[in-house]
Amino acid sequence: MEIRGRRIIVTGGAKGIGRALAGRLSGLGAVVGVYDIDRASLDSLSEEFENIHCYECDLTDEKQVSETVDRSYREMGGIEILVNNAGAILNSPLVGFSSDGIRMHDVAGWERSIAVNLSSVFYTTVNVVGKMVSDRARGLIVNVSSICASGNAGQCAYSAAKAGVNALTVTWAKELSPFGIRVAGVAPGFTETGSMASSMTEEKIEEWSELTPSGRMAAPEEIADGIVFIIGNDFINGRIIEIDGGLRI
């Protein structure tokens, strides 16, 4: 699919991988809309890229998502590509130990992680695909998963949510192909983002970098490159491409 002139939504596009992608797509001539909950980061994105449409939205609130999809669809003149990038890492094992004793995974954290990393993908996609189907327009959904989808100790909610994202990617590819809508994903490994920096100690980051055959974390731009590749290759469908510096080989 040609990128120039395409109307593309990037969720969580004000920071990290989403921001790198939004900037890249804008530079390639796409009409880009970003949904993000972080007002300050959206303002900074607007300053850096005047032509990117910015929408403040809590993606865990279906009503807000529906209204934001309607508004952006109207203002951008349609939506042809959706990149479900928004998410948040949660480090919490099922059973944890500290100097205070044993600590079980809290239910609120579980529910929040599922809402941010999985339900948000469903809410956004169901609203956007409704428009694509009504328009009978060919479309593309790209889901940003994680290599954690295969199960990462210490991140049970996040891993489960991302495994759900993988299942949605495959299921939707099968369901939506007859409508001319492609669905694919990328699964980044450890990536240099604010979310990663705030969720891991420097020692942990160094340890994971050493475990990665490429010997370092990914730059957000390298993950954005993978998404641009998926947009450009119409034969990628129902697959999730791992971009992890060889960590899972």
Binding site: V133, S134, R136, K174, E175, P178, F179, G180
Partner: peptide
């Protein structure tokens, strides 16, 4: 539903009709 969309796509392609509306 899936067969329905396949049917619609095949009708459009093979019967030479313009894209059908929703």
């Amino acid at each position: 539903s899936l067969k329905h969309m396949k049917l619609i796509t095949a009708i459009e392609e093979e019967m030479g009709v313009p894209r059908l509306g929703m």
